[in-house]
Nucleic acid binder design. Sequence first.
DNA 1: AAATATTAAACAAACGTTTGAATAAATCAA
DNA 2: TTGATTTATTCAAACGTTTGTTTAATATTT
Lengths: 211, 211
Amino acid sequence: MAVDKKAHIMNHAIALFADRGFEGTSIRDLAHEAGVNVAMVNYYFGSKEKLVEAILDEKASYMKDRIEELESNASLSELDKIDALIEDYVNRILSGASFHKFLYKEMMDTKRDVIHSFLNKSIARNTRNFAAIIQRGIDKKMFKEVDPILTVTSIIGSISQVVVSKSMCNLLLSQPEANEPYTDEKFKQRLVTHIKSMIHAHLLVESSNHK
Amino acid sequence: MAVDKKAHIMNHAIALFADRGFEGTSIRDLAHEAGVNVAMVNYYFGSKEKLVEAILDEKASYMKDRIEELESNASLSELDKIDALIEDYVNRILSGASFHKFLYKEMMDTKRDVIHSFLNKSIARNTRNFAAIIQRGIDKKMFKEVDPILTVTSIIGSISQVVVSKSMCNLLLSQPEANEPYTDEKFKQRLVTHIKSMIHAHLLVESSNHK
DNA sequence: AAATATTAAACAAACGTTTGAATAAATCAA
DNA sequence: TTGATTTATTCAAACGTTTGTTTAATATTT
């Protein structure tokens, strides 16, 4: 029972932190939104800051990328791996849009130093691992001599840019302000298709195109 | 004299808001950092929130894109315009990295509603105008039939992703934590080159390549 | 001498957190 | 199962700080 309530508070916290920021969300706001007493946050988590750490712990698997698991599959080409990672990133970021916004804010924020540097090292490692796959494709003469790290930056940046602003997203899709574009499966597919085709054109030498 | 002092406070405010957020920065922090009395912020700006509005007013030209000015130049091809916009975005975002981080945070933040929707409408309009240029290139059969809006999203997302995290950036460049990558002209050029080549490969039909 | 700028001190409100009593749940001897 | 006892949860109220802001006196310019 206690686990459910902790998870309940954490979910509301993620949504509020994503929309109003950490300092912008008071414990009273959070308690009211989650329908619990103000004292419960400190009872369950110890402090407001430890609540953030609990959220990060709980979502640790979310942040770990699938690269190790992909590397063990020897039958996949570099391009297959990249395609799989693009799908994986889009799926995870769009379905956890609030959490991603929260992560982004904490990444930009130097106030909680331990979390700040942890997140930055985390995304730097993921980017490096991803870039290594591209580098291998270049070494095998399958890819053009692109900038591997900035190529990964463009992939992640493309997805993040969409998540940053729900309102902008809806404006672009001519949807009403209240629409939830991230859970829309068609939108997800549109984003995957765009990124894949852009990255393919960027990476593949012309002769690889079957045209 | 008053203008100088106002600008002085605003510059420190941008840096602090970018690193610690709006609610994460107290007026006492800001006053101390800027070397002025706590009362001066309210004396010059009226309130903490009006300080944000003053910053946005002052930097309004920063946010207006060069599209109108480019459109008046009939001798430029669609690709020329896109190249010019990429250079313009990289230059402006990298040289005003703190301000861009601050904008990004406000864009994600629903707390100051007027500012939130203003910024989202602003970037949506810029994205739409930019996408219209791509659409014209498609209509002229110069570009492939890409997704214009998501293509612009990728361009802006690529630049923003770099600015989001100085520490990550330095990690990727194997630079020390204290390094300032955004003001590095070589880094700026590397980013422009990457985005241009990626977007060219994405947009141009194969026959256009002089190879 | 009038207007502007600067200051330390004080203001009420909101903040994260703690308390101690009240309630609910779980544990266990009979 | 029962009733007793311990443990875990919930709550309203209060704690000391910090918050944005104002005040009223002083200094500086015009």
